[in-house]
Each structure stands twice: as structure tokens, then as C-alpha cells.
């Protein structure tokens, strides 16, 4: 299953809820959720730990817009908009953690 998160994990619990409920799959971080993909935050440890069970990717244009593309956590991938579409097509279903 593809899990899409679009809220900053430093402000909202969407990513935390996703990590608690979901057991495996792919997590795509978009919009303000890309702050969860970077080093040095209070959620970095949780994200690194989640890499064991999930494939985690962040949307490159959102990283670029926020000037944080140079500090993506090792193991977290990036995709462009076409890659976003591919992810949706690759998975049987998806859940948006609003």
C-alpha cells in the first residue's frame, strides 16, 4: 500500500499516525511532510527506524521549494511528479494521511 503524507511531522501527527497504524509499504512525503525527510529534526530517529519496514520517498520539487534537498536522510529516496504517478500506479491502493 502507498501512504501519502502531506503535513509537517513537526506540527501535526499525520506521519506518526501512519507509522503507528501501517505495518509496511511505501510512504511518500509531499508538501510540508518533506520536512520529515531531512536530517537534524526531532523526528529523524523515527523516520530512520521506519526505513526498516517501509520504502520512504520525498517529492523533489517540494524539497527544492523549501531549500532542504541537500539534507535528505540517507535511505530516503526522492521522486519527481512523474515518479509520484508511477508510485500510485505501482500500488494496489493508497491512503492519504491528511
Amino acid at each position: 500500500m502507498l501512504h501519502i503524507v502531506n503535513k509537517s511531522p513537526l506540527e501535526r501527527n499525520s506521519l506518526a499516525a501512519c507509522l503507528r497504524i501501517a505495518g509496511s509499504g511505501t510512504i511518500l512525503l509531499i508538501e510540508d511532510a518533506v520536512y520529515g525527510a531531512i536530517r537534524g529534526t526531532t523526528v529523524e530517529a523515527a523516520v530512520k527506524e521506519a526505513l526498516v519496514r517501509f520504502r520512504i520517498v520525498a517529492l523533489q520539487p517540494d524539497l527544492d521549494a523549501r531549500a532542504v534537498a541537500d539534507r535528505v536522510i540517507e535511505g530516503v529516496g526522492t521522486v519527481d511528479y512523474a515518479g509520484f504517478v508511477d508510485l500510485v500506479a505501482e500500488h494496489r491502493n493508497c491512503q492519504s494521511w491528511l
Partner: peptide
């Protein structure tokens, strides 16, 4: 996690 497993089984998930 059991909720997560149920979610995996769905055809459509609406939030």
C-alpha cells in the same frame, strides 16, 4: 497494526 492490516486489504481508502 491490525487496523493497518485491514487498511491494506481495501480497494478504496478515503480519508
Amino acid at each position: 497494526r491490525e487496523l493497518g492490516a485491514l487498511m491494506d486489504e481495501q480497494d478504496v481508502v478515503l480519508s
